[in-house]
Amino acid sequence: MSETPIAKPVPEASPALAPFFAAARAGRLVVQRCAGCGALRFPPRELCSRCLGLEATWQDVSGRGEIFSYNVMHQVYHPGFAADVPYAVVIVKLEEGPKITSNLVGCPVDEIAVGMPVEVAFEQLSPEVTLPKFRRRRC
C-alpha cells in the first residue's frame, strides 16, 4: 500500500521576502542593499546592523560563490525529508559577500567540500514560490 508522501514545507512569501521570491521566479538571485551605507545583507532585516539605516533596496547578485560550510542531515525532523536523508544543507558565501543557506543539487553528499565553487540553480516549488538552490561550478 502506498501513501501520498508528505510534501516539504513551502516557505511563506511574506512581505519581507516577496521581492526575493519575485526575483527567483524570474531566475534572478537578489539580496538586500542598505541605502545608507551600501552594505549587502541576507536574509532580509528591517534595518542595517552596520549603520542602523532603515531604508534598503534589493540588488541582483551574480549567483556565484563557494561552499562556506555544510552539514549532512541524518535525522528526519519533517516527514517531507524522510526519503532524502542523508542530505546536505550548505552555506554559500556569495562573491558579493552575503551568505545564504541552501541545498546543493546534483552533487553526492560525500563530494561536498568547503571551498567548492558553486552557482545558483532555481527550483520551482509552486506557482508562487521558486527556491534558489546551488550546483557545482566548473572554473
Partner: peptide, 13 residues
Amino acid sequence: GLDAAYGQFGINA
C-alpha cells in the same frame, strides 16, 4: 526563516 524549506532543522544543524 527559510531554513525549513532547505531541510535545516534544529540547533544541532
